[in-house]
Nucleic acid binder design. Structure first.
Length: 622
RNA sequence: GCCAAUGUAGCUCAGCCUGGCUAGAGCAUUCGCCUUGUAAGCGAAAGGUCAUGGGUUCAGAUCCCAUCAUUGGCUCCA
């Protein structure tokens, strides 16, 4: 039995004439109009029986429950199959289906008639689906209509979900003991995760505004954020850090256009895998799209390189500002899921699978280390790894090595066969306060795009070959790193720990508060002296009480406060109020600078991105 | 994209259910007073297309519809 199921605003049909002798008798062939209804076009095929009918109707009811519709029209539609059952069988099965659905408001259009019809289909993803139900199919395939072959393939792909422990053993998800791995459980059961009790926005959304980091820009499209001076400073430092680390690893930084011609031959097949998820721009007859990754630019560039196997692995890197993905509007949240985001993307062109496998290990270490240095510890994320069965059988020990590097059990998805362009992909998933998982670092082994983009190198035998390409983002989107740091801080706050950003990312590292106006000059001198040591320091020279100025510094999460009065102005040492303890301690100037430099060691520095004096600063966010 | 909730001053919110004086409060801002010792000193002023567009009504922030945005759930996540 074949079914095309449509969730409709309305359908209107008119029986015009009998098509077959045994057509259903109807008294008064009139136009029928039905609204807010699921229409199931049904073709009964040879071999279908009452079990098939029951199965089909239960599947239809199931999906109708999901979309919350209670009205069903069964519409006999022969054109779905070339292997139709006899009309008598078909009619009786159709009747059976109708009576099985008697708990719904169900009807059918007359069997055996030629009908004209007019249908208005709804626009949501579940509105259209097709089903094939046969005697032996326990569950019918349920494909979205109107999708590319790749997306269709994805929904029918067979994959196995497992948990792999660091020692290499694989366990079925149902049998795995998650009691010590709660976050992994969230990741593993993400699809079937039960409803969260809390109905609240993720904490980072309020924090990104309160700390004047970022905000929505109503004049742009959803998911396109604006970054205030504080946010730009943090983002810029993270961008620089990731870039420095990738260059140290051996990536060469390039810059490529943010828009491409969707009719360029290299683009067509890649592009058609992922329809309608990008921003499109029409310009002088060209159909351009905004890049959703750095792949295009780097591959088109590499296409022109004259490469030898001796040059490989060769690594290109770009920090995209921005990559654009037109995510579904309901999916956008704060800094977690955006339509425009900043993505470090490093491709390594490798001569063969063994070289790619060696290289992926290096990049795995790089990714782990980058996250750690950004302030995201291994305990903050869980790992997922996906690969084809063939790739697993040929590279078992390397896969186990990656899992061992992570040191904790890992979610595994094994595909029976390849259906993306890659044969292996791993990612680190951050789980936030609301139990949402989002990918940070990731790497893939791509076996298709070397060919698709015509990238070539010459091997030892002087023959041209397509490279295997790795796609690594060592940190994931920069905005997402800020999201993770804010979510972590919020989690600390819940536990009673004072929330804090890593010192090297703090917009202000030290605040100086003069007790009275007479200390302004001393404070300004001190401020200059500290600034000269590459430390971000400012002076709260507003005419407010000490208590209030300290409170506001606390609200900005500033780690060190120096209150300057007579005692301090006359002392060799600094009196430092440390936010984590709330205590004041006396430390010599040099020792204090050392303390700060130690915490920001090997991290990029940039100066204060606001006025040094608070009296000169507008209030961006309260 | 679908379903639901929310949208009132720069920010956080009250008022809406049950329509009716000039739409309120706290914080922030401005001005004045105070002159400050480790998380909010005192007073005053100014600040509002009640998201947008329609509708019902003598009268709409309040009721109805549509649109937009945010958040949650679903779906999705190259």
């Amino acid at each position: 039995m074949r079914i095309l199921q449509l969730h409709c605003d309305s359908i209107e049909y008119t029986p015009t004439k009998k098509e077959i002798k045994s057509a259903e008798e109807i008294e008064n062939p009139q136009t029928q109009k039905l609204e807010e209804i699921v229409v199931a076009f049904v073709a009964i095929e040879d071999g279908d029986d009452s079990s098939v009918a029951k199965n089909a109707i239960s599947q239809i009811k199931n999906s109708m429950e999901k979309i919350g519709c209670k009205k069903l029209l069964l519409y006999p539609y022969a054109h779905l199959s070339s292997n139709l059952a006899k009309p008598s069988t078909a009619m009786s099965l159709l009747n059976e289906m109708e009576s099985e659905a008697s708990d719904l408001e169900v009807s059918h259009s007359p069997f055996g008639w030629t009908k004209s019809y007019k249908v208005q289909v709804k626009g949501h993803p579940l509105a259209e689906s097709s089903k094939v139900v046969t005697k032996d199919s326990a569950a019918a395939k349920d494909d979205d209509e109107d999708t590319s072959d790749a997306l269709k393939g994805e929904s029918t792909i067979r994959s196995y979900w497992k948990i792999m422990s660091p020692d290499g053993t694989m366990t079925n998800i149902g049998d795995f003991d998650f009691s010590n791995h709660k976050k992994l459980e969230v990741l593993a059961k993400y699809e079937s995760a039960k409803q969260r009790q809390v109905d609240e926005p993720p904490p980072h959304v309020a924090l990104m505004k309160k700390l004047a980091i970022a905000d929505y820009e109503p004049a742009s499209d959803s998911g396109n954020m604006r970054f205030f001076p504080n946010g730009r400073l943090m983002k810029s430092l993270i961008e620089r850090y990731v870039t420095d680390r990738v260059k140290e690893y051996g990536g060469y930084e390039v810059e490529t256009p943010i828009m491409y011609d969707s009719e360029h031959p290299s683009m067509v097949s890649y592009f058609n895998r992922f329809p309608a998820r990008q921003y499109n721009i029409d310009s002088e007859g060209k159909k351009l799209f905004l890049r959703f990754a750095a792949c295009f630019g780097q591959f088109l560039m590499a296409n022109q390189f004259q490469m030898s196997y001796k040059n490989l692995p060769y690594k290109l890197y770009e920090l995209t500002r921005y990559s654009f993905r037109r995510e579904q509007s309901g999916e956008l949240v704060g800094l977690r899921r955006l339509r425009a985001f900043t993505m470090p993307d490093c491709h390594a062109f490798c001569k063969d699978i063994p070289q790619a496998v060696d290289e992926i290990k290096v990049r795995f270490d790089l990714s782990q280390s980058v996250l750690k240095e950004l302030g995201i510890d291994q305990s903050d994320y869980d790992m997922a790894i996906r690969f084809t069965e063939d790739f697993y059988n040929e590279n078992k020990s390397s896969i186990e090595e990656l899992v061992k590097k992570h040191g904790r059990p890992v979610l595994v998805e094994m595909w029976k066969e390849k259906f993306f362009y890659f044969v292996l992909k791993w990612e680190f998933n951050f789980i936030d306060n609301l139990g949402k998982a989002s990918a940070l670092s990731t790497d893939q082994i791509d076996v298709e795009n070397g060919n698709r983009y015509g990238i070539e190198f010459v091997d030892e035998n002087n023959t041209a070959q397509h490279p295997i390409i790795l796609h690594n983002s060592p940190s994931g989107a920069i905005e997402r790193i800020i999201y993770a740091l804010l979510e972590k801080a919020a989690a600390d706050s819940k536990k009673g720990i004072k929330p804090q950003l890593p010192l090297w990312l703090a917009p202000t590292q030290i605040r100086i508060i003069p007790l009275k106006e007479e200390f302004y000059e001393y404070c300004n001198d001190l401020c200059d002296k500290i600034s000269a040591q590459n430390v971000r320091v400012d002076v709260d020279d507003r005419n407010e009480s000490i208590g209030k100025r300290i409170r506001e510094a606390e609200k900005e999460w500033i780690q060190y406060i120096l209150v300057i009065g007579e005692k301090e102005a006359g002392s060799e040492n600094l009196s430092i109020r440390d936010r984590q303890t709330g205590d004041v301690r006396e430390v010599p100037f040099d020792a204090f600078m050392d303390e700060i430099h130690e915490q920001t060691l090997d991290k990029p520095f940039t100066g204060l991105n606001q006025s040094q004096h608070l009296s000169k600063r507008p209030q961006l966010m309260v």
